[in-house]
Design a protein around this nucleic acid. Structure first.
Length: 494
RNA sequence: GAGCCGUUAGCUCAGAGGGAGAGCACCGGCCUUUUAAGCCGGGUGUCGCUGGUUCGAGUCCAGCACGGCUCACCA
């Protein structure tokens, strides 16, 4: 990163040299611990000074030194295990003059293992009275400052480990994310779902309207694409007999980056045979309220300046009604294709070719979506923008589809899956026509998928849920980068 | 990809034409229950990079790099 060593880096290297001269292994291979810092805090925080004196609890605990207060022949310091910290107290008359001098060569950031007895200080802080200690590793760089933590978002993302060391609330976000994914698995597994993994590299990218990343396989000599969705593979599995199947994994879309978009993002997709989109709306309400209750212990979740209620049932509104209600477009104008396209073109879209369906989508995104804060199922989209959804029985221009909008963001997208191979082929051909008219994201024809459908896919409903955005809401973070450990940044060149 | 804003010590920041600054961290000294420990002493720097204007640029101008926000694309 830098070529020039700073005074602090030189000082730390010299301390390690001195430690080695004293015969200390600079990179010991293990440390026998009785507890982690967190375990000590959890187990013994309720014990009083007297109880600790009586019980004489001995612990052996490793951690990173995050603060040091030297006071001559005694020193207080804190060690941290990524979750909790505990104070250590080291005194010359206990560890001896030689060892105390060795401890002088330790810096903030170093890892140490300490052994000793638990006690409480005058100010009643649970503390390890150090009897002996083990050097575990040197940190050659100083840690960011303790009061303000690390503020520079660029360093926070590029060197996330520093963010995790000095900003404890960051770890909480990612622990929440981890629990959320675990609970989703628990929820679906409990319903008899089977988790699978389908190709991340696909010869024909499908299942969504987006531009893919391209790559190349040398041995086969073929172009491959990082998947934009697992959809078409999961449906092949439904054809193969999986009645309830899901996948939680990364999707890749070669699109822009924003506070709501990262080029790789985590998606839950699940498919349930013999069901339609109404069943999935119920399931989604159940799942999200379960997650809110389990993870946050409430159904009222604070997000930005809003309080979002995950109490079922969620609001349901037809796509067309939502546009009419929120955009002021009259129902007759809604059906006037030229008019709608004209209105959509008033927005700066950077697109030259806009279909009627796309125009509606643009109007929805601009005028409707930002206004939907409480969980809202927007249902029955136009067929043109839903090439994989089954048409509504009472209206062939609409499909049995819903998008769940929360906090102005699209969180879920689901539909009764089109399982008529002939109609699916026609829809693909319509997409191909759009593609030829210049719509780059239009769907490609996937013959293998059509063949699978020809073998018969039972009536099925399928849904995708954007995990990152869901975490944003549950963690109350307005930027997707705050819920992805290593969001994509442009590589830094010096 | 476009507009606006930002980039000064390891970190957090001040400085807005003329001596490179503060707190924490660090270095030296004192200090055996401290916790933003304290006291004494020390400034450790390619002011993002490259040019330009000027007697003089951290400060003004241009270009570039990276980031943030908004927009575009998208989920």
């Amino acid at each position: 990163m830098r070529n020039q060593k700073t005074d602090q880096e030189i000082a730390r290297e010299e301390k390690l040299k001195k430690l080695m001269e004293l015969g200390i292994n600079p990179y010991p291979k293990k440390f026998d611990k009785t507890h982690s810092v967190s375990e000590i805090v959890k187990e013994f925080s309720n014990l009083s000074h007297e109880e600790l004196e009586k019980k004489e609890i001995k612990v052996s605990v490793p951690g990173r030194i995050i603060s040091i207060r030297r006071m001559g022949r005694a020193t207080f310091f804190h060690i941290y295990d990524g979750l909790s910290k505990i104070q250590g107290y080291i005194k010359e008359d206990i560890v001896g003059k030689e060892n105390y001098k060795i401890f002088d060569l330790f810096d903030i950031g170093d890892f140490i293992g300490i052994k000793g007895r638990l006690f409480r200080t005058k100010t009643n802080e649970l503390t390890v009275l150090v009897e002996n200690f083990t050097f575990l590793v040197k940190s050659f760089h100083p840690l960011p400052e303790k009061w303000h933590g690390l503020q520079d978002v660029e360093i926070r993302y590029r060197q996330r480990y520093l963010d995790l060391i000095v900003n404890p609330e960051v770890r909480k976000i990612f622990d929440l994310r981890s629990k959320l994914i675990k609970e989703i698995r628990k929820f679906l597994d409990g319903m008899g779902y089977v988790e699978v993994e389908t190709p991340m590299m696909q010869p024909i990218p499908g299942g969504a309207l987006a531009r893919p990343f391209e790559t190349y396989h040398n041995a086969l000599g073929i172009n491959l694409y990082l998947r934009i969705a697992p959809e078409l593979y999961l449906k092949r599995l439904v054809v193969g007999g999986y009645e309830k199947v899901y996948e939680i994994n990364r999707n890749f879309r070669n699109e822009g980056i924003s506070s709501q978009h990262n080029p790789e993002f985590t998606m839950l997709e699940f498919y349930q045979a013999y069901s339609d989109y109404n069943d999935l709306m119920n399931l989604t309400e159940e799942m999200l309220s379960y997650l809110a209750k389990t993870l946050l212990n409430t159904l009222e979740v604070k997000f930005k300046e809003h309080t979002i209620s995950f109490k079922p049932p969620f609001k349901r509104i037809k796509f067309k009604d939502a546009i009419v209600y929120h955009s002021g477009l009259t129902p007759s104008k809604f059906d006037n294709r030229e008019e709608v396209i004209k209105i959509a073109k008033n927005f700066e879209t950077g697109k030259e070719v806009i279909s009627y369906g796309k125009a509606l989508d643009i109007i929805f995104d601009k005028l409707v979506k930002p206004k939907l804060i409480q969980p809202t199922f927007v249902i029955n989209h136009p067929k043109e923008i839903s090439p994989l959804s089954k048409a509504c029985p009472d209206n062939p221009e609409e499909v049995e589809r819903f998008e769940l909008i929360i906090g102005g963001m699209e969180i879920a997208n689901a539909f009764s899956e089109l399982n008529d191979p002939k109609e699916q082929r026609e829809r693909f051909e319509m997409q191909l026509a759009e593609r030829e008219a210049g719509v780059e994201e239009a769907h490609l024809i996937d013959e293998d998928f059509l063949t699978a459908l020809e073998y018969g896919m039972p009536p099925t409903a399928g849904e995708g849920i954007g995990i990152d955005r869901l975490v944003m809401i549950f963690a109350n973070k307005p930027s997707i980068r705050e819920v992805i450990l290593f969001p994509l940044l442009r590589p830094k060149t010096d």
